[in-house]
């Protein structure tokens, strides 16, 4: 629950940042577009699992709609503040890699399972265009780093739950766990700088 709320918080921090500064400067459009694709391909199950958990279903709808709305704002209201020249990560490799893994190692060869596996792997690397952009500019607004931290910590917080499920309930989900570890690992140096600089009131600047 804390992880999911952190995920939810990250989306609201991002929207709040855009409203507050009337700008989407420093936010990677590519990463945001990849997240929308992640949510749409994973949460197709809304159509047949809606009544299994209203908590999950409501959050799925919120994630899809907030993500679509963020993209809408970036493409319309705040379009002039987005600089495509620094958002140059080649996201096609991420899409291709996630697609290949989904085709080779799905749990079952059904359209829904293939899309689910694709979305899990794509989510694990969807932040790369954003991190690449931060690395190119060498710094980030504090509010952008809060967004990245809330988004990064959410998958890390799933890890203790996976351990609890494995040892107490006796089951596991290797694809989700492996992809979740990759996703968390990608944030490690970001977390380090966030912890040593932003938490101490300093500006986020790369060494």
């Amino acid at each position: 629950v804390v992880a999911d709320l952190s995920h939810l918080l990250s989306i609201f921090i991002l929207l709040h940042k855009m409203y507050l500064t009337k700008s989407c400067a420093g936010i990677s459009f590519k990463s945001q577009a990849l997240y929308l694709l992640v949510y749409v391909t994973r949460y197709l199950d809304l159509f047949w699992t809606f009544n299994k958990s209203h908590y999950n279903s409501v959050l799925k709808i919120v994630f899809i709609s907030a993500s679509a709305y963020t993209l809408y704002l970036m493409k319309n209201e705040y379009r002039p503040t987005h600089d495509p020249n620094i958002d140059t990560f080649k996201s096609r490799y991420l899409l291709a890699g996630a697609a290949v893994l989904a085709i080779i190692f799905p749990y079952k060869y059904t359209p829904a399972e293939l899309l689910w596996t694709f979305s899990i792997w794509l989510e694990s690397v969807a932040i790369l265009p954003q991190l690449f952009m931060v690395q190119r500019t060498g710094e980030a607004e504090t509010i952008t780093t809060h967004y990245l931290f809330a988004l990064g910590i959410y998958r890390a917080l799933y890890i203790p739950n996976w351990l609890w499920r494995y040892f107490v309930k006796g089951y596991t989900d290797p694809i989700a766990v492996l992809a979740g570890l990759v996703q968390t690992a990608l944030y490690c140096d970001f977390f380090y700088i966030y912890w040593t600089k932003v938490m101490k009131g300093k500006k986020f600047e790369l060494p």
Partner: peptide, 10 residues
Amino acid sequence: VVQGPRHDEL
């Protein structure tokens, strides 16, 4: 490996 219920995570 015993796989858990799929749709209880986001």
